[in-house]
Simulated scan of single mutants.
Amino acid sequence: MKPQLVAFTATLLCLLAAPAEAYYTVLQESYTPSNFFSKFNFYTAYPTHGFVQYLSKADAAARGMIRTFPDAVYIGVDNTTANAFSGRASVRLESMATFQRGLIILDLEHMPGGICGTWPAFWTLGDDWPNNGEIDIIEGVHDNAVNSMALHTSAGCTITGAGGTGSLTTSNCDVNAAGQGPNQGCAISATCTNSYGDGFNANGSGGIYATEWNSAFIKIWYFPRGSVIPADVLGPNPAPETWGPPVGMFQGACNIDQKFRKHRIIINTTFCGDWAGNVWSDHPNCLAKEPTCNAFVQNHPEAFADAYWRIKSLRVFSS
């Protein structure tokens, strides 16, 4: 082999073997305590039939349900009304900005999970549901111990779950998929009990959730506080290709660019409703307190003192 060809081949092999460079270099949106609530709309409808009253920004602030601290924001629920006969007050935030692919990094100290009657979620959503898709990053109900991640789409999207550390629950992302529950979508459950609810909140100031959405896949990582967290996760140039396997790996027979378009970020806590209300009897610790989910939420305000989000930062990078 000629010396020039040997040199070229060696250089090519080095380039192929070299780790990929960080490619999320554009910070598209940064939500910090100083600007957080100015970048969200306060939604006041009832899309999942929850036993809830979503408040406007002014009403939520007046009742102390949203607060700003130097290092975090607080998003809570009503925990004082003794007989909330028409639903308990809460907050649902929807980002003013929309996103098409990218990297979403949430630095979270506390979440509302682990409480009977609650259904908290951190997720993204496109208009004309389900045709433009839904990505559930943090979600659970009642006293669930692990986080549930899911995609919801129109027909024609399935995943294998291979490549992630989570457990595949359902593989068909179609909200009307045969053999799956209504609107179950394709779901992956985390396996560690510090990923959601009480376990998360007991984990020394929570942790970081990162979601990478591109044309080939959607990945969700969880880094508990106190574990080895990659240094670049909270830096200016995060490089998810170096983070190891995600908890949730959503990839398969699915045209992601077609099924997921122009999403808003949503943060909310609802009560009962289509999921939590329908599985009340599956949670014996909750069923022992009241015969129905609505009755518990109505009559036990003291149970919801810890049903709050405390968010340090939320950043969205584009590639």
Rank of each mutant, 00 (worst) to 15 (best):
K2T: 09
K2G: 15
L5M: 14
T9M: 15
T11L: 06
T11R: 07
L13Y: 08
L13E: 03
C14D: 03
A17G: 02
P19K: 13
A22F: 07
V26Q: 09
V26Y: 08
E29K: 14
E29M: 15
S30W: 00
N41W: 04
N41F: 10
Y43K: 05
A45L: 08
Y46P: 11
P47A: 10
G50Q: 10
Q53I: 14
K57W: 01
D59Y: 05
A61T: 11
R63Q: 15
I66L: 11
I66W: 10
I66H: 06
R67Y: 02
V77L: 14
N79L: 09
N83P: 14
R88G: 03
A89E: 11
T98A: 04
Q100N: 15
R101F: 14
G102A: 10
I104Y: 08
I105N: 05
D107L: 05
E109D: 15
C116W: 04
G117R: 06
T118S: 04
W119A: 05
P120H: 04
D128H: 08
N131H: 01
E134W: 10
I135R: 00
I135Y: 00
D136F: 09
E139L: 02
D143Y: 12
A145E: 10
N147H: 01
A150D: 07
A155D: 10
A155H: 09
C157Q: 13
A162Y: 00
A162M: 01
G166R: 05
G166S: 15
S167Q: 06
T169C: 06
N176E: 00
A178G: 04
G181Y: 07
G181V: 02
P182F: 03
Q184L: 02
Q184R: 07
C186V: 06
S205G: 13
G206Y: 13
G206T: 09
G207Y: 09
G207Q: 05
I220E: 05
I220D: 02
R225Q: 15
S227K: 07
S227F: 01
V228A: 05
P230D: 14
V233C: 14
G235V: 14
N237S: 14
P238V: 10
P238A: 07
P238N: 03
A239T: 12
T242L: 15
W243D: 13
G244H: 02
G248T: 12
F250L: 09
D257R: 08
K259G: 11
H263F: 00
R264V: 01
T269E: 13
G273N: 15
G273Q: 11
W275T: 12
A276F: 02
N278Y: 06
S281E: 12
T292N: 00
N294Y: 02
H300A: 09
H300Y: 03
P301T: 09
E302F: 02
F304C: 09
F304K: 15
W309S: 11
I311S: 12
R315P: 06
S318K: 15
S318T: 12
S319C: 07
S319P: 15
S319R: 07
